[in-house]
Amino acid sequence: MTVRLQSEPFDAGAELARLSEGRDGVGAVVTFTGLCRDRADSGAPLEALILEHYPEMAQEELERIEAEARARWPLIDSLLVHRYGRIRPGEPIVLVATLSSHRAAAFAAAEFLMDYLKTSAPFWKQEETAAGTGWVAAKEADDAAAERWSRG
């Protein structure tokens, strides 16, 4: 189980190869890579995203989310990588990988990790466009996506 915060880009393929190498019991690997789009939420061409974060809490919070996923699903391993700093369109922002014996747990855990990460990991995006720099507003759809995992 690994949580990594970094400013530099990552290679999702290389991360996946490293993670699944020599893992005989693994029958399923699900990965999600979030990329920086080339448009701001307004539709204007995006020059870059600038991600601010609360480093110590981001690390701890992602570890708590990962522990929650492990408690819910039989995961063999998982990896969360989240970038901060300036990110250009086409570059990766976030990577979630889950390894399990069977696919159902790996799919569900990956989706859970992303949904929770979006609403509870302390990162904030700014969009850099020709018009200037502005903070991205939180989306209700993200709250709803995280809410559906709540224990009833």
């Binding site: 981001a58 976030v94 990162f123 903070w135």
Partner: peptide
Amino acid sequence: IAFFPPMTGG
């Protein structure tokens, strides 16, 4: 104690 807007990572 930290204060911040709703989070927009991921």
